[in-house]
Every structure is written in C-alpha cells, then in structure tokens.
Design a protein around this nucleic acid. Structure first.
Lengths: 148, 148
DNA sequence: GTATAATAGTTGCGTAGCTCAACTATTTGC
DNA sequence: GCAAATAGTTGAGCTACGCAACTATTATAC
C-alpha cells in the first residue's frame, strides 16, 4: 500500500521532470547546432561519445538506447562532413571503429563549450546538497534504464 | 576549480542518464501505443495532463516544454478520435478548455496501467534510499528546466 | 569442412514529431 | 477606439527514427 503510493509519486515526478528536461535540452542543442554548427542533437551525442574513446555503431546505439540504423545514419553525415573517420579492425572486419578527425576534434571543443556552458548555467544556482542529490538521482536513473 | 570540476561530473552524468532514459521511455510508450491503442507518445502525454485536471493548449505546451502548435496538432487528433473534447470558456472566449470524454477516460485508465506498470517495474528493485534520492533529484531537475 | 546462426553495419521506406511563420479570433491597455 | 498582447490553428518543410531487408564477416554445429 504505502510502497505503491510512493511509487506513484515517483512515476508522476518522472513524467514531470525527465521528458520536459529532455525536450528543452534538445531544443537548446538544436539552436546551437543549427545556428553555428549545422549539426543535429543526435550527431552531437554521437560526437560526444566518440570523443570519450573509441566506439562503434553498435556501442553507440547501446549507450544511447537507440537503433543501430539511426546511429549509422548520423555517423554517415559526420563522415561526409569530415568530422569522423571510419577505420578498420583487422581482427574482426565486421567491426568498424570510429574516431574524430582533427577538424572533428576542433568543432567538438567549441560546440562543447557552448552546450555545456548552457547546461552549467542551469545547475549553477543549486546548493551543494541539491547537486549531490541530483548526481545520485541521475546515477540511479542511468542504472534503471540501462539494461534491456 | 573544485566547483567547475564537480560541474563537469554533473553534466556528464546528465548526458548519460536523461537522454537514454527518455529514449527508452518513448520507445516503450510507442510500443504500447502502437500495438494496443494506436496512440503516439505525445498524445499520451497530452491525455496524461488533461486527466490531471482541466487544461488548455498553452498550459500543456508550457508544461511539456514544447510549442503550442505541436500540442494543438496532438489535441486535434485526440478530438477526432473522440477521446478529448474542446469546450468553451464564456469569460474568455480565446481560451479553449480541454477535457477527456468517457471513452478517453476509459482508454486512459488502461494505457496508464500498462505504461506505469512498466515504469513501476523499473523502479521496483531500488532501495528506499535510492528512491528518495531519485525523487529529490528529479524534483531538482524539474525546477532547473521549468523556467524558459 | 561446410552449412547455419549470429553479429556488424547499411539502406530504403514510411511516419512521427517537431519548428517557424503566417493567420484568425478574442481581450487588454492606453 | 485602436494597438498590443494572447489563445489557438494551419501549412510547409525538415529531422529523427524504427522496421525490414540487405551485405559482409565471423562463430558454432555437425
């Protein structure tokens, strides 16, 4: 009883926080991307993850909880724009490792500054306690939605 | 220094939690919606909010951080399907209050059960502490992204 | 060793989900 | 009473993304 009531509160809060946060973030990224870099939010996410280390289409799809075809298409655009290179894995030729080009690296640095400054500004006025609870909550969120 | 480093951690965590959570949720809603109710995720959100009380296109757009035109179109589909009615506000005739029809209420009840059971199952194995931190974190998230 | 299954990636097609700008219909404020 | 603001709608157009079908490669089964 008590448990299920609390559950309902969690679910309500989820609907009221995550989808709006996401919509607003996407909208902001789009604005930056379109105005200055002609890049979509999805491409931004792909670049973001490639930047953190070597990656493949499948790994990116898994990490961002989307389909391989969607990632494949995003990567394709980035390759055509000279921001990403598809390289080779001689041990397993099905695998196609992805990496940033120098230009990709450069673009990433500036788009990152802008996007993350915006995000940063959002979090700026939070207290230390709020930040810590937020961090913990987001980690839980990540865990909860990462499998399956 | 310390502050900005912590900020970076928060931002990273944000990227790794919110967008994937959202993508997976949308995907699940779509599955339920398409398979059983022929309804999109956006329509689901609109119905969800109307169910909680009277609402208008503008209020819904504000709450879900999207544009009025997007909401207007979603509402239009729901009206054509007989799930929502546009009524009148005689005090201000610009305002068009929205309400569920009986059929809309009925459909909502069952789609809700299904969608929220899925969400509920995700949160099921969390400890009480995790749930509380999650709740607090999501409230912070909501606040942070609620004003323009 | 070959057939079969599994895996990585791509492509075409269709549709949902927006946004922007332009428009109508009201109401509010000098 | 007229300009500005507000609520809502509509049309054009583009992006995102899933599904299904396809190729290429590797792993497994017999």
């Amino acid at each position: 009883m008590k448990k299920s009531k609390f559950n309902q509160i969690i679910i309500d809060k989820y609907w009221e926080s995550v989808p709006p946060a996401w919509r607003q973030t996407r909208s902001k990224i789009r604005t930056i991307a379109v105005e200055r870099f002609q890049m979509t939010e999805e491409q931004f996410q792909v670049l973001r993850r490639i930047r953190r280390g070597s990656a493949s289409v499948s790994a990116l799809a898994e990490a961002s909880q989307t389909s391989r075809s969607a990632v494949s298409k995003a990567v394709d655009v980035l390759v055509r724009r000279g921001l990403v290179v598809r390289s080779q894995d001689l041990n397993d030729r099905r695998n196609i490792p992805l990496a940033l080009t120098d230009e990709g690296q450069r673009v990433m640095d500036s788009i990152f500054n802008e996007a993350e400054e915006w995000l940063s500004a959002r979090f700026e006025h939070l207290s230390q306690e709020e930040l810590e609870a937020l961090l913990e909550g987001m980690e839980t969120l990540r865990k909860v939605f990462s499998n399956s």
